[in-house]
């Protein structure tokens, strides 16, 4: 059954996949956080990644974002096996991540956070001694947000620590979308948010999807998943137990996979 679903999805893909995981495993000490996970992401896919606590979702995301490498197996970008560690290398491959615990610098403004580690600058010589082109960074960040119809007041002057969780999450996703050329990874983007703010975040994900951005979104909320994703991958104890089109399945079936009632 499990193998069937995999072959169905794989069989559909005629062109080279944007990203392909080939029998990826990750061991932490003796714990198999991931075990022989394989799947492909095609351009434009919006995949929901679900599973119980400790199923390996964040581990999978961190593997793709270059936080750590697989213990075995390989990751192929457009057909070529690639090393994605450290995160800066994954970024060079066009993979951006919105981490579960928000990798924003809280004392920086939204505009400053946009260019963390990738400052625009004047001058030659060692990068650290170059002069930042603050105006260019600020205006680019502002227009990137405007482009996505996100209004965050004081984005140039107010540190993000003085913004709401929703505003911070919108800023983090907008930053990811701005830089990602291949894949945007979202680890529980709505977990800490209220109803209205979650709605705004999902609205943004939908807008990005309409632009053709490929996304992999970890979530515990199936309603959220169904409202934006065209595919769902279920993890259980480090293994992939299902990989289905949202149109071909139901929430009940997905829950059954998550709990292990079905496998």
């Amino acid at each position: 059954m499990q193998d069937d679903t995999i072959t169905t999805i794989a069989g559909d893909t005629t062109t080279t996949a944007l990203v392909r995981l080939d029998r990826v495993s990750k061991l932490f000490g003796g714990v198999h956080a991931l075990e022989d996970v394989s799947f492909e992401l095609s351009k434009g896919d919006v995949v929901g990644l679900v599973g119980d606590n400790g199923a390996g979702k964040s581990t999978l995301v961190k593997m793709l974002s270059g936080v750590f490498g697989p213990t075995s197996g390989s990751i192929l970008i457009e057909g070529e096996p690639q090393t994605l560690t450290p995160p800066a290398r994954a970024q060079k491959h066009g993979i951006e991540t919105v981490y579960q615990d928000l990798a924003l610098v809280s004392s920086f403004t939204v505009a400053e956070n946009f260019f963390v580690g990738r400052e625009r600058s004047w001058g030659r010589g060692p990068r650290l001694f170059q002069i930042m082109n603050r105006r260019s960074m600020t205006s680019t960040a502002a227009s990137a947000l405007e482009d996505l119809n996100i209004t965050i007041p004081h984005l140039k002057s107010r540190p993000v620590e003085r913004m709401s969780g929703g505003q911070r999450q919108m800023a983090a996703i907008a930053r990811g979308a701005f830089w990602s050329e291949r894949l945007l990874l979202l680890d529980e983007p709505t977990a800490a948010l209220g109803v209205r703010e979650s709605h705004e975040v999902l609205e943004l994900v939908r807008a990005l999807s309409a632009r053709g951005l490929t996304m992999l979104m970890v979530t515990h909320n199936l309603e959220h998943l169904w409202s934006v994703c065209n595919r769902v991958i279920v993890m259980r104890r480090g293994k992939k137990v299902a990989d289905l089109r949202s149109a071909d399945t139901t929430m009940d079936e997905v829950v059954a996979y998550i709990t292990g009632a079905k496998s």
């Binding site: 936080v67 450290p86 995160p87 800066a88 970024q91 991540t97 981490y99 615990d101 990798a103 924003l104 610098v105 809280s106 004392s107 920086f108 400053e112 963390v116 580690g117 990738r118 400052e119 600058s121 990068r127 650290l128 001694f129 170059q130 002069i131 930042m132 603050r134």
Partner: peptide, 24 residues
């Protein structure tokens, strides 16, 4: 205020994890 070094000194103090992930 204006050099990349300065910006990154603020960064590693403000959120070392984010700085590390950003390749600093």
């Amino acid at each position: 205020q204006h050099s990349i070094l300065g910006r990154r000194i603020y960064m590693i103090g403000g959120n070392p994890e984010a700085a590390r992930i950003a390749g600093v």
